[in-house]
Nucleic acid binder design. Structure first.
Lengths: 133, 133
DNA sequence: TCTATACTTGAATAACTATTCATATATTTG
DNA sequence: CAAATATATGAATAGTTATTCAAGTATAGA
């Protein structure tokens, strides 16, 4: 896994006493060596929020139609048969994770996909799901 | 976006009346044409569940240490400084989405990453997050 | 077979999240 | 400026989820 980590908060005072007995394959020293590989909590939280933005059917449907063209909120609401308010709330989540970008034009706000990562993540997930469930 | 969709439940009876006025860029006919591009609800839910499995700091940390080596539950618990029960519950979520696989050996259960999609998704997310926040 | 260990699981609780409803802001048009 | 439209937002509610605790299963060894 990438992200070989910077700050690790591994304190020898508490917690790392292994519950495993001696026959367990990995022991204290090795677990200590695992720490540098482990995603630091803060980064893990940031990343979880990002994946969280993708973890909702409504938001995924919004992204799927935005993949075809730029659309304003009321068109998105119409296409998904949802209230504009609900769509707007979800677009805010997508914006907060920079999954979509927007462009104001008069009273309309046109949304579109932010970058290619969105498509790539979508594709990876699709491939994974299509492999023998 | 991939996944050009199979069944679309677009019924002309209700919902698709456009809230947008005539100056809105996309009209009813075009919105109707959007439907085939839209992720069907069932697939969207399936995909949301998958991303949901990645949307938790604990599970991402588990994956990050499993990326370095196969590990048993008690070692994972020790490394993350969490109860074995909590870790086991989270591993169940990862298993349910086939993000990890496991191997029983005596009383230990050794977990490892399921396939390369995990790494790819991790990398895409990392790259996205590292771009100008 | 009895005990200990590794892991799993169900129920309960606390924290989080999606939608609705009401309201607010901004822009266009009369 | 007033009215209408497009979007955004705050509060409330209902549904979801992560962790804990207690109990359960399975395997190994005495």
């Amino acid at each position: 896994m990438p992200q070989p980590i910077q700050a690790v908060e591994f304190t020898p005072e508490h917690g790392e006493t292994p519950q495993c007995e001696s026959h367990c394959p990995v022991h204290l020293n090795q677990i200590r060596q695992l720490q540098p590989e482990m995603l630091p909590l803060e980064r893990a939280q940031q990343m979880a929020e990002f994946f969280g933005a993708l973890a909702d059917p409504t938001r995924l449907r919004l992204l799927s139609v935005l993949a075809t063209q730029e659309l304003c909120v009321c068109d998105l609401a119409t296409a998904l048969k949802m209230s504009e308010s609900a769509v707007s709330h979800q677009l805010r989540v997508l914006r907060s994770q920079r999954l979509v970008k927007y462009r104001k034009e008069g009273r309309n706000v046109h949304y579109s996909l932010a970058d290619s990562h969105v498509i790539n993540l979508y594709r990876e997930a699709t491939e994974h799901l299509d492999e023998a469930d």
